[in-house]
């Protein structure tokens, strides 16, 4: 059984291979033509949702990344959100990264700093990924 192209781009590739490269390069870039056009015409609707996240216009998408109060956006990654305004770029799990943040005072408004306020914050906690329950929230 032939595999079904999952979206328009895949469909164009299948059509191109089927035609063994007969489709001029410029037309490949512009979109399906000839036999491929028909194939996509028929499959366009059912496949349309496949590419909605790539090219579709999502309603009510915030115009700009949200910067919540007190949050910094610009580091890679940031504390609450990454550069894209989401969480995909955060260090994960965060416990793996906590000691570095503590020792380097890298997030002084988010993680207790070893240099000044909380030199012993990790005293009960040898490996944050395992012992993170021994950490405490600090009110400097």
């Amino acid at each position: 059984m032939a595999l079904k192209p999952i979206n328009r781009k895949a469909d164009r590739m299948v059509t191109y291979l089927a035609n063994q490269g007969d489709v001029p390069e410029a037309e490949q870039m512009a979109g399906p033509v000839g036999p491929a056009a028909g194939a996509v015409e028929g499959g366009a609707d059912e496949n349309a949702e496949d590419v909605v996240a790539l090219g579709g216009r999502l309603p009510e998408v915030p115009e700009i990344p949200h910067i919540p109060l007190g949050c910094s956006l610009v580091f890679a990654p940031g504390w609450e959100v990454d550069e894209a305004g989401g969480t995909a770029g955060l260090c994960q799990p965060v416990e793996r990264d906590l000691f570095d943040c503590h020792l380097a005072c890298f997030w002084p408004a988010h993680v207790p700093d070893q240099l000044n306020h909380s030199p012993d914050w990790t005293g009960k906690c040898a490996a944050a990924q395992n012992d993170w329950r021994k950490l405490e929230m600090i009110f400097p």
């Binding site: 949200h66 306020h117 600090i138 400097p140």
Partner: peptide, 20 residues
């Protein structure tokens, strides 16, 4: 229908919350 974007993120480990 309407929708909003929600970020569920990591805790804060200290709070400079003098106002509290």
């Amino acid at each position: 229908r309407a929708r909003a974007h929600l970020v569920v993120t990591v805790p804060l480990y200290l709070l400079f919350d003098a106002g509290a």
